[in-house]
Design a binder for these strands. Structure first.
Lengths: 203, 203
DNA sequence: TTTTGAACATTTAAAAGAATTAGTCAAGGT
DNA sequence: ACCTTGACTAATTCTTTTAAATGTTCAAAA
């Protein structure tokens, strides 16, 4: 029974998440995390092979939590537009709460494209698949008409990334550190975008 | 009569454009530009106050050329979707030919947000206005129904930025140096995007 | 199996110096 | 007065070096 190990891993994840979300990946040390848990640095390496794995595990933990909430929502409501809005909102909430967690991913992106493909790519895939799932609901209900669901889901995802990039660029305060207002603005644009997009797919 | 001055400025712009487009802003020196024109570096500063102004002037020169072509197209065809496609295509051509010219703008963006607002912001504005103009054609013809044209144009622009960002991220070769294939892929996605978007605005 | 302190290795940060390049100026040519 | 220039200065970028911080390993102990 590996139960004990799992509990400990969960504790580590919890603490690491707090630090990562607050100060970002770069500015939290393994020593700090260990100290928070009041045990030795070396022990961290007993449970996680390296810092990067720990980071990825935290990401996975956080993202899965959200995905699950989304899936649950999908069970209840079969309304395509509402479902998409819900996804947008929970994504945004997640980013607000754990901004520095993702900040690292974004900036790491631009520097180590090779590595990040394996650790960050999956999250994009998950987001894409979620969109695809929602679109499929619309198609099955005969509400929407789309030839290639996968590709359309990707389009939708990219368009929403664009909203973020667009706002961040034109605000251009400390670039890459969206203010709360920025988040609201991004969400607002994304919603409008989705609205038009879905309308454009109506059968 | 400032004719002579204008001719010289034009010559400088022409040469500077070639170098910037080839090697980018950072890796072309004022000395090189001067040498290409076979006159002294100091003379450049007689016609342009500094390097940044020269760069901006080149950008303006290049972008205006494209905008004008677009406006001409608009005179002929009043078809909204075709007009948008034309804009996308000419934008992409421009980027293919002068990639490093824009590359600098993008990367400068993320570092000196304050400065770039004045030198790069106007180009975004122009693009936005062009989209707005096209959308207005559709509205005037009664084809489209949009409440806020300015905002919708912005949405469209951002969405297209997203296509670029999205493709560049998932290709992740040497990040930020799109291959010719990438350009094609981006254009393809952008066209699909526009298609759906316009359909979503149909009256 | 789990935990640790101490040692090791790798990354980052800062400082100093050299080299490149942006930008200025007084003077000369037209 | 309008152009043009070479030589000068100032600012920036590029190396190199060094020191510090931090990630990672490991033998030994609980």
């Amino acid at each position: 029974m590996a139960k004990n190990v799992d509990i400990k891993r969960a504790k580590i994840l919890e603490v690491a998440k707090r630090r990562f979300a607050h100060f970002g990946m770069a500015k939290t040390t393994m020593a700090e995390i260990a100290k928070d848990l009041s045990f030795s640095k070396a022990l961290l390496y007993y449970y996680f092979p390296d810092k990067h794995s720990l980071y990825t595990a935290v990401m996975e933990y956080v993202v899965n939590e959200m995905i699950q909430k989304n899936e649950e929502f999908l069970e209840k409501s079969q309304d395509v537009e509402k479902a998409l809005m819900f996804v947008l909102e929970s994504r945004m909430d997640l980013m607000k709460e754990n901004y520095n967690l993702f900040e690292y991913s974004s900036s790491f992106f631009m520097q180590n494209p090779g590595e990040v493909g394996k650790s960050l790519g999956p999250f994009f895939e998950k987001a894409k698949e979620l969109f695809a799932k929602i679109l499929k609901i619309g198609v099955d209900k005969g509400e929407l008409q789309v030839d290639d669901i996968q590709e359309t889901a990707e389009l939708l995802l990219f368009a929403q990334m664009g909203m973020k990039a667009g706002i961040l660029n034109q605000e251009m305060n400390d670039c890459f550190f969206p203010s709360p207002d920025d988040f609201d603005m991004i969400l607002h644009k994304q919603k409008k975008m989705v609205s038009i997009f879905v309308r454009g797919l109506k059968a």
